[in-house]
């Protein structure tokens, strides 16, 4: 342990000194001290060695958040934004929103305004969660040039992952559609089967979940359109990019007919 008062005087500067290469001058007085103090010189060397290792291994030391955390937080924040937009409109604060934010808020309110308030909000939150999963999963598994997978393979995957015997459509019910991947996604109430389709080049997701009490709704949120329905004891939600509502409606009709 160093008890030299001169050492104490320079103690705080040692951290800074350790971040500079040999020869760089943080403080000339410190350098004079180091030249005559082996203890401080050793302390700087130790700090420099540790810092070098930490900097070198920065990436390896980082921890990745578990799957699903990002989606859950994004959904929470989307719910906050939705509540905030509603409160703003109700109190006249909407006038202070930027035109874009006001347009987004207006779109939300108009889209879900026809639904009962309680179930409507939960449907919006669910739509927000799945819209984010839609974007994320297509980035990971939805390459536009991906080789289509067969309905049989998708059905086998769903049987293996969920124990569900679900007839899968290879085309999503439309002529230019094809199935490119099957994934499993975490949402706030459990796990959902996620079927990734390409309709032409448009990415469209079909999420299949255990039946919920969410209202059947058409929601536009986070630059996505969604359509949901209940059938055969499960909740289904189609998600596509904004402007794909007609495609989603068509797919929903065909998929419901195929599943009967």
């Amino acid at each position: 342990m160093r008890i030299n008062t001169e050492c104490d005087r320079f103690d705080e500067l040692l951290a800074l000194e350790a971040e500079h290469g040999d020869g760089a001058v943080v403080d000339p007085a410190l350098h004079r001290h180091l030249a005559g103090c082996p203890a401080c010189e050793a302390a700087v060397a130790a700090q420099r060695a540790v810092r070098k290792r930490l900097v070198t291994h920065r990436r390896a030391l980082q921890i990745t958040a578990p799957p699903g955390v990002r989606t859950r937080i994004a959904a929470k924040l989307a719910g906050e934004a939705h509540a905030e937009a509603g409160a703003s409109m109700a109190t006249g604060w909407g006038l202070r929103l930027s035109p874009l934010a006001a347009a987004a808020a207006l779109m939300l309110v108009i889209t879900v305004g026809v639904l009962p308030m309680v179930t409507g909000q939960s449907s919006v939150v669910l739509a927000a969660q799945l819209a984010l999963d839609h974007v994320k999963c297509f980035l990971i598994d939805g390459d536009v040039h991906a080789t289509p997978i067969s309905a049989a393979d998708a059905e086998a995957t769903m049987r293996k992952q969920h124990g569900w015997s679900v007839p899968v459509s290879a085309t999503g019910g439309v002529d230019d559609g094809h199935l490119v991947a099957v994934r499993e996604c975490l949402y706030s109430e459990g796990m959902a089967a996620h079927l990734l389709y390409r309709v032409g080049e448009t990415p469209v997701s079909l999420f299949v979940m255990p039946d919920t009490d969410h209202a059947v709704a058409s929601v536009s949120i986070l630059a996505s359109d969604t359509v949901s329905w209940h059938q055969n004891g499960r909740t289904h939600m189609l998600v596509g990019p904004a402007g794909s509502r007609a495609t989603l409606d068509s797919m929903a009709r065909h998929l419901q007919l195929e599943a009967r």
Binding site: D11, E12, L13, L14, A15, L16, A18, A43, A46, Q47, V50, R51
Partner: peptide
Amino acid sequence: MSRLARGRR
């Protein structure tokens, strides 16, 4: 700075 120096040591 003080904690950094002590922590690294």
